[in-house]
């Protein structure tokens, strides 16, 4: 098992290096290059020359890349053009919000999706089955941001049941420790702050969780249907095991293996979707910051955020792979 983990960790290195080359080249390939990107479109030629000298952009490319890599390893991606603050500081301030949101979305998708997919498979061809199949098809066809706007309009604006923007009531003066607002509230025992932060997660979380939900329902249903026809299930039934035991130990356990890989793959989808949902709900996470960076052409922020999000994505997938190895001993061998 340890060898498996080490091998997977080593495979990470070329990917991360390639990623850094790609995003380094990206900033260089932009019209006007990094100097123009940092100084804006009205920069004069002299400004650009001074900037290039100052930041070593007149050096050969490989020197520049090695410097970039050296700084990137120390999580230094320069400063935002708009706010002048360090990109990493901004990322770390906002990322907890996105983690809270994606976790909520994932818990929602898994918590609803697996039981729903399982029940749909048990009642194969029935009403629940067909409606969950149709629902999951609709779920993957709907543009996330439209769904988010619709939910916000109905539940926040018209009905006023849930808050429709921000991460917390503005009037609550909460203490910040980790920037995970819910956690902070719990840690400082400011219950109202924690509750407010949690309530603010519901609408964007559900909107964000819809696509993973649709996919999880579909995969769970398909894999349960696959497993019930396996020989070992027939054997278990023939041995006279209680139906509940067969379901729990033989069907669900085996059916969840493909589901767990899908859950890992959903992280990318969630990070993509977060950019859209956070924008709709003015949720102060990395997603809405990315959207602002696009509108303002804030290239250092774009570069740093995308690189850091990609690293997060790769690491999460690594963790999923490892947990998959724990769940299914057959994976380790390969």
């Amino acid at each position: 098992m340890l060898r498996f983990i080490i091998r997977r960790l080593l495979q990470l290195i070329p990917i991360l290096l390639g990623l850094s080359v790609l995003l380094f080249a990206w900033l260089r390939a932009l019209p006007g290059g990094p100097a123009q990107a940092a100084l804006g479109e009205r920069a004069t030629a002299e400004d650009i020359a001074r900037y290039n000298e100052l930041f070593g952009l007149d050096q050969p490319l490989y020197v520049q890349y090695l410097r970039f890599l050296g700084r990137a390893v120390q999580l230094d991606f320069g400063t935002s053009n708009r706010t002048g603050r360090a990109v990493t500081t901004e990322f770390l301030e906002r990322f907890p919000g996105t983690i809270e949101l994606t976790l909520f979305a994932m818990v929602f998708a898994i918590g609803v999706g697996i039981p729903l997919g399982y029940l749909a498979a048990r009642r194969y061809g029935g009403f629940l089955d067909s409606s969950s199949v149709i629902g999951s098809l609709l779920g993957v066809s709907i543009p996330v941001f439209f769904l988010a706007y619709l939910m916000r309009l109905v539940f926040a604006v018209e009905l006023g049941w849930l808050p429709g923007s921000g991460r917390q009531e503005v009037r609550i003066d909460a203490t910040r420790i980790t920037n995970f607002y819910v956690l902070d509230g719990l840690m400082t025992r400011e219950w109202d702050a924690a509750w407010s932060a949690f309530v603010h997660l519901i609408l964007p979380g559900i909107a964000l969780g819809t696509i993973p939900l649709a996919i999880i329902v579909r995969i769970t249903r398909a894999s349960v249907l696959d497993v019930v026809n396996e020989d070992y299930v027939r054997t278990a039934n023939a041995k006279g095991l209680a139906t509940a035991t067969v379901r729990r130990r033989h069907i669900i356990r085996n059916a969840l293996l493909p589901v767990s890989t899908t859950i890992g793959l959903q992280t990318g989808l969630l990070l993509s979707g977060a950019v859209l949902t956070e924008t709709v709900f003015a949720f102060g996470g990395v997603g809405s910051a990315l959207r602002d960076a696009i509108t303002n052409r804030d290239f250092p922020v774009l570069q740093g955020f995308i690189l850091m999000l990609a690293v997060v994505y790769v690491v999460v997938n690594l963790l999923v792979d490892i947990s998959y190895g724990l769940l299914d001993p057959r994976v380790r061998v390969r």
């Binding site: 990206w26 990070l271 993509s272 999000l309």
Partner: peptide, 24 residues
């Protein structure tokens, strides 16, 4: 396949944003 892995390591919408910003 390593190259493909690198492309896959960026969530799809972020990848599209990167390319789109580059190309105008």
């Amino acid at each position: 396949m390593r190259f493909v892995d690198i492309l896959l390591s960026i969530p799809s919408l972020l990848m599209a944003i990167t390319v789109s910003v580059l190309l105008g």
